[in-house]
Amino acid sequence: MSLPNITLISFGFFEQDFLEQIAKAVQTEFGLPVNVREGHIDLGEYYDPARSQYNANTLINVIDSMKFPESVKILGLFNVDLFIPILTYIFGQAYLSGKSGIASTYRLNNERYGMSQNEQLLLERTKKEVIHELGHTFGLIHCDNPICVMRSSTYLEDVDQKKQNLCHRCQEKLKNE
């Protein structure tokens, strides 16, 4: 029987090394082994032509319905533009104290903003976003500490300002969860 772990499941093309580095960062932060998997779903079903975006509410439900018995948390990683009905876009979302979360690299990529590609920066941002959403699944809410990974980020600048780690207060909360 496997030890409890976290599943990081990717949809769309991602370099293996990119995913492994994210998995390593997640393992360091939450102290649980991370299983990297590839997912295959028809994303077209979740596409909203009126908004030219993918519905994050339905995508998170797909992730939540997936069964990996040994996994305590599942994080779906996408590379498409996510939205929820009330907001123009989101970087990711999660069920607070639940099992699942999703994140997307789409709006974390420099090229999206007319700047040159920066793989390292994209990796750092994705690590932060994945750890942030997983933090919510562990019951952590947004943190006031500007460098804590649980700080709410609505712009890339906010993501770049924070670190990929939980602050001491959030670490304490995590221990008590």
Partner: peptide, 17 residues
């Protein structure tokens, strides 16, 4: 009246505490 809007905002705000 839209459930998806309620759910989206609900999830957004509980993450803020």
């Amino acid at each position: 009246d839209e459930e998806s809007v309620r759910d989206s905002l609900y999830n957004w705000f509980i993450e803020d505490g």
